[in-house]
Design a protein around this nucleic acid. Sequence first.
DNA 1: TAGATTGTTAATCGATTAACAATC
DNA 2: TAGATTGTTAATCGATTAACAATC
Lengths: 214, 214
Amino acid sequence: METSKTAPMPTIRRLPAYLRLLIEYNRAGLEWISTTAIAAELDLKPIQVRKDMSFTGIIGKPRKGFEVKESISAIESFLGWQRESKAVLAGCGALGSALLGYRGFTHQGLKIQAAFDQSREVIGKTIHGIPVLDIADLKKYVIENIVTVGIITVPEQFGQQVADIMVDSGITGLWNFSPVKLKVPSNITVQNEDLSSGLAVLSVRLGENQNNEL
Amino acid sequence: METSKTAPMPTIRRLPAYLRLLIEYNRAGLEWISTTAIAAELDLKPIQVRKDMSFTGIIGKPRKGFEVKESISAIESFLGWQRESKAVLAGCGALGSALLGYRGFTHQGLKIQAAFDQSREVIGKTIHGIPVLDIADLKKYVIENIVTVGIITVPEQFGQQVADIMVDSGITGLWNFSPVKLKVPSNITVQNEDLSSGLAVLSVRLGENQNNEL
DNA sequence: TAGATTGTTAATCGATTAACAATC
DNA sequence: TAGATTGTTAATCGATTAACAATC
């Protein structure tokens, strides 16, 4: 059976920006939004926004556009953000702590329930209201609490090790902020975040611009 | 004149990972590396690595591959990472502080010289060795120190305002971590980092896998 | 030599964009 | 009604991959 094809990754990556805008519109009391408006706001082409929206299954109305509230639900549901996934975070350094403090995740289907670290100095404490536990207890915690997502913010050299523990505990989704290519079984979903990629793009584009200005 | 075409963005985004691997190889005392090896390590196809490498201008040797040291220079030079760009960071919250603490930037052509904030509580202090100044003095500082890159880690509602100040000060590259579409003149390079995009991809892929397992 | 690896040209694949009829 | 906007099908564009001769 040929079900509706899964959305292209670039589409998936753009949806959160649409969602943010829709929520703003909703807060402002607006009931309809056109892809023309979304595109203008986000510096995209209307046709692209329309294509993207179509993947979520929502249907618009000629002349009016899309119902704001309905679109919010459609995107949230498409992304699986209406129901929360339980997550744990390993590595309470600067970046880990920053993520623990990010309140937006609650609206993005992610509930960070506990953080883990090696260091005596943070174990037992609380960061932004989230308890920090001994990393030795991670497996037990994950099994008892049916955690599905693991966030990895440990230093590079511990990345693989922590991933192994998480996978071994039954976690199936890894959000990896360490600059290591993790080796995991094929049934595990890994999403890598790599700041250097973005910096590389910035650097190259800055260089190009400088040349153009000569 | 048709100079060598500029590299595709996906290529640029992959180069830092190659660079990291090459540096590891170099540290291990290895002198040559093949694209086959790079690909195996990073879970890519050799042909893709070869194509990517070709954009940096480096030339390999049949049967041996690429000279490690030479490749490091080639990528660093391609990315413009051998000479440092001066940067300032605005917004010393959790994320901003985390970035200030990231030591890797020095090898990636980025020198964060100063941080700026609104809050009396942090102004005058130092975060990871970097002085925090009053955001009111940003313009003066940027002009005096010929800063070219601005890192934006302020809360959403201040993003545009801070970008305006930076652009007004003469900064030409913005690395934007606030989830706002910045409106800036066309000669300004903006690189947006958006955590929600990555989370969206993770969520969707996790959802797909769950379905497959039923 | 044999064979691993390179660099280049061509084919394929997938995402974006254009075109346009349908709708209110 | 006129015209803005939708949804869909087709064309274009750009990145990835395949094919293969050249090299050491």
